[in-house]
């Protein structure tokens, strides 16, 4: 029956089958529960008394998703905002920190990649600063910047700068001398050489760095928002955990995954656009 389908179609069928089977197993593994309203205060505080009572079945998560996604932007006070608003805050922070990082990393990476001396001079700093967990900067950022919002953005900035900086420098340094010679024999000036030869030649490596950075930034924003609180998807997860609303926790975990995937595929698209075969 599957024989006349393409590889992609067969894979899609298999994915759907795995999803359905997985959800069914999950659903079946969770014993029927009392609705939250029927629980006593004591039961609620101890997670319902039953061993797995806290984990909701997928049907509940789906119902939650339906409810949340049908009105994602409602705002009913500081602790009750729609998922769309929370994700919006997170994306805003990620993009602000990320764009600031790109504005510094790409030109600086160009410079470092063009000059052996700069490459060697910057390298020890990069090597020491790069492995630092971005969250380790948080206390210092909070102390110096004195603002939790700006500190979260700073943490995104500091974690996304390294892959972009290193990849840009690496990509620029690795541009084939032949191509640079083509620019030279055509009397291109420095700016034209940079934009017409070096940038397109290094673009796949640079975009790879940008793709790695956005992935890391999205990983880090969740943790950063758990720490700084207030708004954002990371705060939302933490808040729902404090409310013991595991349905919302699971739903928001899925949303984190979906948004991360969308960010990554945007860069994947960009990457395919600039990749060339030699």
């Amino acid at each position: 029956m599957l024989d006349n389908l393409s590889t992609n179609q067969r894979a899609a069928v298999l994915s759907v089958v795995m999803l359905v089977v997985g959800l069914l197993i999950w659903e079946a593994a969770i014993p029927a529960q009392k609705a939250a309203s029927e629980l006593t205060e004591y039961e609620r505080l101890t997670g319902g008394g039953a061993p797995k009572a806290g984990v909701p079945p997928p049907s509940q998560v789906l119902a939650k998703a339906w409810e949340q996604l049908s009105n994602p932007f409602y705002d009913a006070g500081p602790n009750d905002k729609g998922i769309g608003i929370q994700i919006g805050y997170s994306i805003y922070r990620v993009l602000t920190g990320y764009i600031l990082a790109a504005l510094i990393a790409i030109p600086l990476g160009f410079l470092i990649g063009m000059s052996q001396v700069a490459y060697k001079a910057f390298n020890p700093f990069i090597q020491v600063l790069r492995p630092i967990s971005p969250l380790a900067w948080m206390p210092l950022a909070l102390f110096i910047i004195q603002d939790s919002e700006a500190s979260a953005i700073f943490v995104i900035f500091i974690c996304s700068i390294w892959p972009m900086l290193i990849n840009t420098a690496f990509g620029v340094a690795g541009v084939r001398q032949d191509w640079v010679n083509v620019a030279r024999t055509h009397e291109l000036n420095g700016i034209k050489t940079a934009f017409m030869v070096i940038l397109p030649a290094a673009a796949p490596t640079i975009i790879t760095g940008m793709r790695i950075s956005i992935g890391i930034a999205w990983l880090v924003i969740v943790a950063a928002e758990m720490l700084v609180g207030g708004t954002g998807i990371g705060y939302y997860v933490w808040n729902e955990w404090n409310n013991l609303d595991l349905t919302s926790v699971i739903f928001s975990i899925l949303m984190i995954g979906v948004v991360g995937m969308l960010l990554d595929s945007a860069f994947g698209f960009l990457q395919r656009a600039v990749t060339y075969a030699e």
Binding site: D178, W179, T185, H186, E187, M196, V197, P200, V274
Partner: peptide
Amino acid sequence: GPSLDRGVVFQNYSLLPWLSTLKNVTF
């Protein structure tokens, strides 16, 4: 220094791989 008065054809062609054939010449 190099100049447009001296054209070079390199052994490994040295075409810019991200440009089409036509764009390599119009370049």
